[in-house]
Nucleic acid binder design. Structure first.
Lengths: 195, 195
DNA sequence: GTCTATATGGAGATAGAC
DNA sequence: GTCTATCTCCATATAGAC
């Protein structure tokens, strides 16, 4: 399943990341991880204390990766509106859902502070980035002064996370795209930047 | 657990609804359902063909109930903006998440058209109600003519569904509320209705 | 309709040999 | 580090008595 070059430990983590994305924590069994990674029972319990320990390594990596991707897009070129547009319209495998956000629907993740922490921190990090961008847009006169950066950031992030829900419910990415377009139409900059 | 008056079949459905909300489909076992409902193994398989069959009955009921609740709020009194505000700010047990939306993160639900159908139909029904309200608001001059009813409806629904994700990630309803306030600030009506 | 018995396989892990 | 054996529950039923 993976390059011969990848260590057993790496293969275990990568397989777990995939399965957590596809099936969530509750739906992912050690057995499935072993089959996908090609590792044996003994290897898994040698490298990790158990399912929660392995899941934690996988979740941390996925969270870090998503945070970095979002940050790259949000700190790219363009006006505040451009950067938010870039974030909202970046390429996504919509029907797969968000590998981080989906974990919040997993009871065992939400019940475990250690497992939930990377999820919380990542969404929070993205929210702060967007909030700062909105504030910047307000200073430049691109956004109405009445808007609250932190609130709009929550709206943007929620639209994305909820877009996945609508898309998966209907079996089509169309609803995700519609939600994003609706939000962008509401955010549309007013007139020209201040002189 | 339930009134003596409730039939065994009813108790099974109600227990299943609760468990699906708390733990999702994958995380809900027949055994847990039996324990919560107080029914025996034999009763369950007498009334239902198996876990998917019982889950279907539970999901249909939850979906119908949520659709009716949303419809009641959205067809209430007030201007289009008022009614969307009412929908967005209606009382919710935010940290429990949406009993319908959460099912979209369940791989076995999304993979089964019959189980997914009530979820899809319910979200679609709400979306259409909101879309019509937005169009009504446009006619009344409360919303900009440039807005697209169907798109804004997707944004509104996504903000709610995504709000649950943010709230559960952080363990606090604050993010849900922030997202809703952000969206309402963007939707804020312009000036007075046309003459 | 409900109960108890029985069954197969999976979940999640430990033990100890190699 | 990895492998195989073994273990205890649980998941998800079916069978047949009452």
């Amino acid at each position: 399943m993976y390059s011969e070059r990848m260590s057993t430990s790496e293969r275990l983590i990568e397989s777990t990341r995939e399965l957590l994305w596809e099936r969530g924590y509750v739906g992912t069994s050690p057995k499935a991880i072993l089959e996908r990674s090609g590792a044996g029972q003994g290897s898994m319990y040698h490298h990790f204390k158990g399912k929660p320990d392995l899941a934690l390594a996988a979740i941390r990596r996925t969270a870090e990766e998503l945070g970095a991707t979002a940050e790259a897009v949000l700190t790219g070129p363009g006006t505040p509106y451009d950067r938010i547009t870039a974030y909202l319209t970046r390429e996504r495998d919509v029907l797969r859902g968000c590998p981080v956000g989906r974990l919040t629907m997993d009871p065992d993740i939400v019940a475990n502070d250690e497992l939930r922490a990377p999820v919380d921190e990542t969404l929070d990090r993205i929210r702060e980035l967007i909030a700062a961008i909105v504030e910047e847009g307000k200073e430049q006169g691109q956004f109405a002064p009445s808007l609250d950066g932190a609130e709009i950031a929550a709206t943007v992030l929620a639209t994305v996370q909820g877009g996945y829900v609508l898309a998966r419910a209907s079996g089509s990415p169309a609803a995700f795209d519609a939600g994003v377009r609706g939000l962008l139409s509401l955010l549309e900059p007013r007139g020209t930047p201040h002189p």
